[in-house]
């Protein structure tokens, strides 16, 4: 089951400029999700990061992974209308520079949940090559 941008906006409250996923390719609520983010040449963050060497900021890729996880958790009926907050970022590594024109594939897989806390394994890839990996802890709340 995939989602287009309008359907994504029904699940998570993020909006331009902080909505950092374009499309959801696969979604299993509360379990896993795969989304894509196109880092097009006209993306707002390339302008200042950096003026003579545009490269996608690592923190925004981590945020895009968190939004992918948020889509998975907030599409559970009991979480409808809630928000996802960052509670932790562990073992985060950036393996590849993400340049204008690259398309990121964002994959998350739930490792464990307890009450309103979820821990997910997250990876971002370009053309199948690892760009970012991290373990993200999210708190689901109001």
């Amino acid at each position: 089951m995939g989602l287009n941008i309008e359907e994504i906006k029904e699940i998570i409250p993020h909006r331009y400029e902080m909505l950092l996923i374009d499309e959801v390719l696969e979604l299993e609520p509360g379990v896993s999700a795969i989304a894509i983010k196109k880092c097009t040449e006209d993306s707002w963050f390339f302008k200042g990061h950096f003026p003579n060497y545009p490269v996608t900021p690592g923190v925004l890729m981590v945020e895009a992974l968190a939004q992918t996880a948020a889509v998975s958790f907030l599409s559970l009926p009991e979480n409808k209308g809630k928000l996802g907050f960052f509670a932790g970022i562990n073992n985060c590594k950036f393996k590849k520079q993400v340049l204008p024109g690259d398309t990121l594939t964002l994959e998350i897989q739930t490792l464990k949940t307890k009450g309103s806390i979820a821990v997910v394994a997250a990876v971002a890839k370009i053309d199948g090559k690892l760009a970012v990996k991290a373990e993200l802890t999210l708190a689901i709340g109001n």
């Binding site: 932790g88 464990k112 307890k114 009450g115 806390i117 821990v119």
Partner: peptide, 24 residues
């Protein structure tokens, strides 16, 4: 409270048990 949840998760994993929320 977040440390507590992470601690419970780690203990559940290490001892292969399930700790109910009300016990936690």
């Amino acid at each position: 409270s977040l440390d507590a949840v992470e601690l419970i998760m780690a203990i559940e994993e290490e001892f292969d048990v399930e700790i109910a929320d009300e016990d936690a």
